[in-house]
Design a protein around this nucleic acid. Structure first.
Lengths: 136, 136, 136, 136
DNA sequence: GTGGTCTAGACCACA
DNA sequence: GTGGTCTAGACCACA
């Protein structure tokens, strides 16, 4: 089943971590259209978080069209809709990519190393989720 | 000449945007070792910012070894030196990669498309650098 | 408890003085991994400083890996990690040593006296750390 | 003869570098009481510096009692006098030493390595000046 | 003129 | 409540 993991000490805010992981689960098909997510309170308890933090993450995902919130029923994976125009999507991707690449080059990584790192992360995200949760 | 643009309302803090763009200019060779940057106050006026915001960005770039600051003289592109330990470099790469992938997935790009974009940009950045130095 | 003192007129900037004292407290074991530091605003009020000055000092200590900052929670003593490359560590050591020796020579201490003082303090610092943890 | 070397790109201000080197030369006996120093303009020309920078360094050394300036004659090494009381000297040394040691320990140097570094620098200052200037 | 430090005070982001 | 960003503006340090 879909499982979230959150590290409170990390660099990224907790609500961001939730958003990222839900997005990834949807992007990789681990969560399919119509699947239910744990309720705000359930998840908050499970992860030992303030429920405001979970609510904030869900709200943002709803705003983006990744999730649908149905009052009194729960929160579900929405039918995907594109928010940005093709040109805007491209522009945003390029900008984010430029920021990432220049940081990586500043850190003295070679193009090969950078490509490897990207590939590794993408592989990891799409395949080895199950393995990770064994370690838990 | 080297030119910066900054959008105050955006997600990314202004001083981060300055850092990003200077790193990019150095990574692509638009700024070469020894080149002077606009003075703190000059740039602040140009971008309609407070000088402290520019100073904060420059200070971070000095810490990273991208720039050299010479008191009373100005700020210059530094000779490359590696500032961080292996562990710290990895930490920073992973963090930057996470931010990038999160953005790319939000934009509904598939892993394949992301990898392609990375490869394309890396080629482009490294070849544009070569071309520039011929012109020099 | 951990207490800081700061002299605004001195040669060393206030935020540096804060950095120095936190580093000392961590080096001697007065502050242990996981300990919370006074909040930015609390400390600012206590020392009759602007909160920005305290924030600047804490930010530098976070960068150095001495502290961890958790947004919305506070600032804590970090688990030791090595942030800088060998070259950078050497650079910083030499710089600090230069500042120290310059001060010591100004005070008319001879090389022998300086070496003695260094040895004595190193013994003292490392043994006081051991003692503290027994008491704990 | 007494020779100064100054690196404009370095971390320490130029006038500080001059002060430090004159102090060291006096401390190690390379410059003896009554010896003449190069005039402000001579030294400025030799080191390709603004003469204000040299003047500032000399002025500070005169204020500290290291040099004597005799109007129309030149600048000379003064008969040493102690400016601080014994207690004050000790206090200042300890404080400077604490700042240095906690920085070195934060950088993850061991006590042995720190002692070595101190010894090396002191040796170098007192003996290998001649060797260095060959390299010039 | 150029960079660096500090204050006072507003407003945002996160838990 | 806690940390982070930004402005306006003063004053210092250095060349």
């Amino acid at each position: 089943m879909f499982e979230l993991r959150v590290t409170p000490g990390g660099n990224r805010p907790i609500y961001r971590q939730i958003i990222d992981q839900v997005r990834q689960a949807v992007a990789t098909g681990e969560l399919a259209v119509g699947d239910a997510l744990p309720s705000v309170r359930q998840l908050a308890e499970e992860l030992v978080l303030n429920h405001n933090t979970v609510a904030k993450a869900y709200a943002e995902l709803v705003r983006e069209g990744v999730l649908d919130s149905r009052h009194g029923r729960g929160v579900f994976v929405a039918k995907r809709r594109r928010v940005y125009s093709a040109g805007e999507r491209k522009r945003r991707l390029d900008q984010a990519l430029n920021v990432f690449l220049s940081e990586a080059l500043t850190l003295d990584y070679t193009p090969q190393q950078i490509e490897e790192a990207v590939t590794n992360w993408l592989d990891q995200m799409t395949t080895s989720k199950a393995k990770d949760s064994e370690v838990d």
